[in-house]
Every structure is written in structure tokens, then in C-alpha cells.
Design a protein around this nucleic acid. Structure first.
Length: 273
DNA sequence: TCGCTTTGACCTGGT
DNA sequence: AACCAGGTCAAAGCG
């Protein structure tokens, strides 16, 4: 796949999808807000990854060389009924059209997320490492505090289950977002040697990413900078700018709407219908 | 004490 | 109805 390809939302590439999508990757999640499922498919050597839903929600860098395989996967996904009666009372799975926001296939060696990839590769090599151990090891590399649970994607996850799937060929771990109001889950599939093969996000976060401690302590560094642990390149800086694009566009939309509304109220009396 | 992971058991849906 | 696979629960253990 050409890494220079533009990210094209709603691009349908079911042929590629079929390579990555597994028959048991059918989930539904209903939420009161926008829902979404995204998947990260890794290459065998533990590549970097960026989820489409995260990218859409948090406005990741469009230069992230993510090739969105498809976002219109309803037709590819079995609409079989899913679990609805979990005892914990907050089961969100029900019969509703699935909004699979996208599937990302990231080429190994992506310069932007290489740091993250290497971090995750470390973890994938030793999946049994506890979050604290990882954090300590990270601190050994960089002075920044980097809480890392499951996969470092900016959110805090709590593992609630693990299963051997597909004839014990793969190990699937189940994570919930630890944010008290957030119901997002994710599934990380690993091979037995610890390589992360697939990450599936269920739902979208209704809250910002967890702030790194050092940022909260007054550091002027951005989250990305905390993640990278080193000065940002020009490309990374543009990522920071893009972080504010949702806010920018939403404010533009609101101000445009207000302007239009105001203009109409002014002009309307002058117009003879 | 708290938050997390681990892991066996349980539940549900599909065949 | 039985079996199987996937998803979740919850007790136990750990740091």
C-alpha cells in the first residue's frame, strides 16, 4: 500500500478489509452520542497505529499516512444480534446499525508515530508487563511521565478480560476506558509471542484525552510533546495545530451561523417576498 | 486501601 | 438440545 495515499473518508476497500477483518470482529455499541468502531491492524512486527475514530475525534495529523480502508462497512459486518443482557447493567450492545468509522492500516516505519510504535513494540514484546513497570521504564528513557495502560493512545484503559480466540491462536484482551462516564471499549489481539496484531475500538470517547501529569503540573509542552518526549519536528508541530481544528471549525461554524442569522434578520425586512 | 491485572466461570448467540 | 466461540463478570492477587 502506498503510504503517500491521502486519507479518504468513506473510502470503500472491502478487498483490503477482508484481509484484515476477522469474522469474529463483529460488534455493536450503542451510545447516546456518536458511536463508532475503529480498528487498527498491525503488521506482524508491531507497527504503529492510529485509529480512525480517534483521528476524526481528536484530529490527528492528516499526514499520518494512515490509509483508511473503509468506513462504510455496514455491508461487510454481520448484523447479527449481539449481547444485550449483561449483568452489570450497562451493556451497550444491541441491534442497531453499526457505524464502523474506519479501519486503519498503517505502514511500519511511519515517521510520525514511530516513537509510539516503538513503545508499543516494547510492550508487545512483553505483554505481561504491568503498567507501572512500563511507566518506570519509560521514565528511564525520558523524563516525562507517561502512564501507559494497554496501548498508549492518550486514554486510560482498564483491562477486564482476556480470551484465547481462534483456536487459542491469538489472545484477545478487553479494555474499558477508565473515564467514569465513558463507555468506550477496545480489544487488543495479540499473537502468543506478544505481537499486537489488531486493535478494535468500540465507540468514541466523550471526553478529552487524559492529561499527562507533567502537563497538569504546568509544563507548557503539548500532549504530543509529552508523548514524544523530545522536541517536535515540523510535521509534529503541524499535528499540534491540527489538534485544534475541531475547535476551530466548530467555532467557525457557530460564528458563521450567528452572522448568517444576524444578516437574515437585517435583510429580511428589506426583501419583498 | 486502592486500582489494576489475571483468570476461571458464566452468559449469550450461532450452528 | 448440545456444542462452540466470543464477551463479560467477579473473586483473588499484586504493587
Amino acid at each position: 500500500m502506498d503510504i503517500s495515499e491521502e486519507v479518504v473518508p468513506d473510502l470503500v476497500a472491502s478487498d483490503i478489509l477482508e484481509q484484515n477483518q476477522k469474522p469474529d470482529s463483529t460488534f455493536q455499541e450503542a451510545k447516546s452520542f456518536e458511536e463508532g468502531i475503529s480498528r487498527i491492524v498491525r503488521s506482524g512486527n508491531g507497527a504503529s497505529d492510529i485509529t480512525i475514530s480517534d483521528r476524526l475525534q481528536q484530529n490527528h495529523n492528516p499526514d499520518s499516512q494512515v490509509h483508511e480502508l473503509e468506513s462504510n462497512q455496514e455491508k461487510d459486518i454481520s448484523m447479527a444480534s449481539l449481547k444485550n443482557g449483561n449483568s452489570d447493567g450497562h451493556s451497550m450492545l444491541h441491534e442497531e446499525s453499526l457505524n464502523r468509522e474506519g479501519t486503519a492500516d498503517v505502514i511500519p516505519g511511519d515517521g510520525i508515530s514511530e516513537e509510539v510504535a516503538s513503545d508499543e513494540l516494547k510492550q508487545s514484546k512483553s505483554p505481561e508487563l504491568r503498567a507501572h513497570d512500563i511507566q518506570v521504564s519509560q521514565e528511564g528513557i525520558s523524563s516525562t511521565v507517561r502512564p501507559e495502560k494497554a496501548l498508549e493512545d492518550g486514554y486510560n484503559w482498564r483491562k477486564y478480560g482476556q480470551k484465547n480466540v481462534r483456536g487459542n491462536e491469538f489472545i484477545r484482551s478487553y479494555y474499558k476506558c477508565t473515564h467514569h462516564t465513558c463507555l468506550v471499549k477496545k480489544q487488543v489481539e495479540r499473537s502468543h509471542d506478544g505481537q499486537i496484531l489488531d486493535t478494535l475500538y468500540l465507540g468514541t470517547h466523550d471526553h478529552p484525552k487524559a492529561q499527562p501529569i507533567s502537563v497538569a503540573a504546568g509544563s507548557s509542552s503539548s500532549i504530543q510533546e509529552e508523548k514524544m518526549g523530545e522536541p517536535l519536528s515540523g510535521v509534529a508541530e503541524s499535528m499540534i495545530e491540527l489538534e485544534f481544528f475541531p475547535l476551530f471549525f466548530s467555532s467557525m461554524f457557530v460564528s458563521s451561523f450567528c452572522f448568517l442569522n444576524c444578516w437574515i434578520s437585517k435583510v429580511e425586512p428589506l426583501i419583498t417576498w
